[in-house]
Design a protein around this nucleic acid. Structure first.
Lengths: 148, 148
DNA sequence: TTAAATCCCATGCTATCCCATAATATTAAT
DNA sequence: ATTAATATTATGGGATAGCATGGGATTTAA
């Protein structure tokens, strides 16, 4: 699982260290890493190849001409299978750098099955927004299921 | 799996490099490459012979005299099994060049099980369209199934 | 025999790999 | 508890291999 938040530097070659705990999770799952444009936020989403496969399978289940199928295909087009170097770093593709307004700092935010990579300023915006919602509407109501 | 987007040059002999990651996918699957006219867009679709077989099988499931069957057969007629040269390039048949309004630049767009080849301007149209839909209707709602 | 398609070699560029070092966290020892 | 020793993680930069592309040689077809 991807949990916790950390701030890492992006160098001139657009390289950045994936937090060690995230790396260990990928290694444990023996899964390659996929990076793609988030459909909800101006940030990059990271996940496993296996999970991406589920999106792809979902496309064939949909009406091929529908908006949803169209958007999912566009999502695939902006997805990249990324190899880590020996030090646990990745190179962030240009397309994703500019989409997420990244330049020299990245905020890694684990959210369970996947994680986000934010620019520090966008992250702050998002964080403030969440605090505001929490203050105005109170905490979310959750029904937890047992593990299978 | 075909993922990511890249821009390659088409030379005077109508040759173009298939992106290395797409090539590796074909090699891993030990599958020949098929190029054909997309049924939905003014672009070329590329996929494996195996997946093309599934389209062919699908025809038999249809009413043989229906419009759908007719369209699918026309699609097959403009399908080509393409060999890669030693550097990973293919020659795009004239029929497909003009169908997709290609001349000296090609945009390769991976969409999972297959990929598209667009002219840069058509690709841009398509991308803008997706951003508009995303903005107006929000992200696709998906319930993901577990992988088998 | 000429034109066109295919194959193969050459080159510049860029992304990837690998080593070195700096920073941080963890353990051990006094 | 404080300091020292060690391991782990993060970052910088140079060497290298692989990719995209141009062009010429060889084969195939008309």
């Amino acid at each position: 699982m991807f949990l916790s938040t950390s701030h890492n530097k992006i160098d001139l070659k657009c390289r950045v260290s994936i937090p060690a705990s995230f790396r260990m999770n990928l290694e444990k799952l023996k899964e390659p890493l996929i990076l793609f444009k988030s459909l909800q936020f101006p940030c990059i989403e990271g996940t496993t190849l296996k999970r991406m496969q589920r999106y792809i399978n979902a496309i064939d289940e949909l009406d091929a001409l529908s908006d949803d199928a169209f958007l999912l295909r566009m999502m695939m087009a902006d997805s990249f299978e990324i190899k880590l170097d020996i030090n646990g770093r990745v190179v962030i593709p240009d397309i994703l750098m500019s989409f997420a307004s990244l330049n020299n700092k990245a905020v890694f935010m684990g959210i369970g099955e996947s994680f986000y990579i934010w620019s520090p300023s966008e992250y702050e915006n998002q964080y403030n927004k969440s605090q505001k919602i929490l203050y105005e509407k109170g905490p979310p109501k959750l029904i937890l299921k047992k593990n299978e």
